[in-house]
């Protein structure tokens, strides 16, 4: 008795699930673009292992009772049947939204894609060679990063100073997904300098329990590897139209930056904003480590 055929079918099913998500674009709800090389590797491996199992006729080495295989149908069924949708404001509420200050950590990772993507690729091309090679590259890597150790403070300030130069003096700033976290961090670091600047931003509506009816947040989930690590970033908005926008509706806001306080912290607030409903963008998340 062998369950090889059943295993083959399920493995193929996982390959198909990933393929379907990649083709439909739904994969963006689960996985950050930076991890995609690993996901492709997983998909191909599922197909290969599945194909080998379909045509296998030997006895099982590790016999599993059949309910184990049924368990693997759960993620498959859920993946195919349940709607693909981004996380919503109930999760945002449980995770806590970051208004500026705390966001600057992840905002710094602009370089990460450069260092990680080739590594992921080399892993894919030749996992074993890659693993062997790591012994050697580790030292080089340490060297490569070492100079940064001494100047990381300056680097941090330099990065945002430079960015500040780019935006300072602008009468208006339109924030898109690539600049969402960077601009929010700038607004927080240099709130006073940006007072009076017109800002246009879009996100989904989120409310803290203590907000009054004219206030809401344009929020985005920022994802590093997968949805499990997604954090929430947002800009507080005061607008007379706020009440028209229920939680989780996507909207665009245009208003003027003022320095304000929330929970005893100084934050940038977008005031007198005009709000407009928009369609959910193709990519519901923003990616701090990927540009």
């Amino acid at each position: 008795m062998s369950y090889a055929f059943l295993r083959g079918v399920i493995l193929m099913g996982f390959g198909l699930l990933i393929l379907g998500l990649v083709l439909s674009g739904g994969i963006v709800y689960y996985i950050a673009p930076i991890m995609m090389p690993f996901i492709y590797f997983g998909m191909v491996t599922f197909f290969i292992l599945g194909a080998v199992q379909l045509f296998q006729d030997k006895e099982d080495d590790h016999p599993q009772p059949w309910p184990v295989y049924v368990l693997f149908l759960v993620p498959l069924t859920a993946g195919f049947i349940l709607p693909e949708r981004g996380l919503d404001s109930s999760v945002a509420e449980n995770r806590g939204v970051q208004y500026g200050a705390a966001a600057h950590g992840p905002g710094l990772q602009a370089e990460e894609s450069e260092s990680d993507t080739p590594r992921a690729d080399s892993y894919l091309d030749d996992p074993d060679g890659y693993m062997e090679a790591l012994g050697g590259t580790e030292e080089e890597e340490a060297d490569e990063h070492a100079p940064l150790d001494y100047e990381d403070e300056e680097w941090f300030e330099g990065y945002y100073e430079e960015l500040f130069e780019t935006y300072a003096g602008a009468d208006e700033i339109a924030v898109d997904e690539d600049t969402f976290i960077d601009v929010l961090t700038l607004l927080d670091l240099y709130t006073d300098s940006f007072e009076g600047t017109e800002v246009e931003v879009y996100g989904f509506a989120f409310r803290e329990p203590d907000f009054d009816e004219n206030r809401l947040v344009a929020a985005r989930f920022g994802m590093t590897c997968c949805v499990a690590d997604a954090g929430v970033y947002g800009l507080i908005i005061d607008s007379e139209e706020a009440a028209d926008f229920g939680d989780d509706t996507w909207f665009q806001a245009r208003g003027t930056i003022r320095a304000g306080t929330y929970n005893g912290q100084e934050v940038a607030i977008l005031e007198d904003a005009e709000l407009e409903p928009i369609e959910q963008p193709d990519s519901p998340y923003v990616y701090p480590g990927y540009q």
């Binding site: 709800y29 996985i31 996901i39 859920a78 997968c226």
Partner: peptide, 8 residues
Amino acid sequence: TIFLGIVI
């Protein structure tokens, strides 16, 4: 969504 995210 989170379950599939972790699994995938």
